[in-house]
Amino acid sequence: MGRKPNETPEIPDDMFTPASPGIVTKAETSAAPLTFWQEAWRRLRKNKGALAGLITIVFLIVVSLIGPLFNEYSYSQQDLVRSNLPPKIAGLEWLGFDGTRSSGENTYEERGITANAWFGTDEFGRDLWTRLWKATQVSLFIGVVAAFLDLLIGVVYGGISAFYGGRLDNVMQRIIEVLVGIPNLIVIILFILIFEPGILSIILAMIITGWVGMARVVRGQILQLKGQEFILAARTLGTSNGKLIWKHLFPNVMGPIIITVMFTIPSAIFFEAFLSFIGLGLQPPLASLGVLIEDGYQSMRFFSYKLIFPAIVISALMISFNLLADGLRDALDPKMRR
């Protein structure tokens, strides 16, 4: 059989035999392949700090929601008979929750008060346990809403800028470059000065310049993705722009977006507390962690408990969010590590 080297030899039909059904087996895989999110969750779980942060955040959210229900006091109810009570918890006296002031006297015995204030009361007799959790709710709300609005504006702006490109992108980027130059602290303070301090005006003040960071992240990501083959393939197959954005670009930008949001929440919580501390925050009887810290700071010399509890909660919250954000960054996008 003279044949050229590259030619396949002819194989006669009788060399084939039908395979018995038992032989056909699927390719063996050790486990079902992980999706991107399962993989990320697996990596996140390995990061002890991030996991601790996540657990602390969930714990604080739950406690802040159900905590105020544990006693009969409301966050705004004043009772001058119960003013400036130090913290006292039955059974936890050995931890310092014994109702004595820094000077050593026991306020409860002096005034003959039997109902304990777990985290003490402020100068108007408002229960600080209830106020603390109410404040945590408010601070978390401000942080989450501000981050969400940043996300909305930033994604739309950055997305349009990168997706359409060209002159539009150029103009939009110049605007961003000018905005970035303005210290956001200054904008926030001026904004609050004009509008009455309140939850809404604080949130608005923070998003005026806050969305810029998100817009930059989204733009950078989309610019990178735009040139890749799968987008070209989708385009070639006639995918509409809308579908391209929602089905192909958006899921791929999710990682960096989530990371940015997780870093925005603590910084929004910080700014709210900061504003309250310089006297531009929420007005009483409303409470936020910043308001409580400011109140506590004013009277810390004699009633240090008023400062310590909100200080612990805000620190725990900030640390947890930062740890979780760090962990998410490593889990979702190892390239973004910094």
Partner: peptide
Amino acid sequence: AVLGMSVPSFVFAALMQY
């Protein structure tokens, strides 16, 4: 470092002062 980034400076300052 995480502690220093997270704890607001005024909280730290107030506690330090106290």
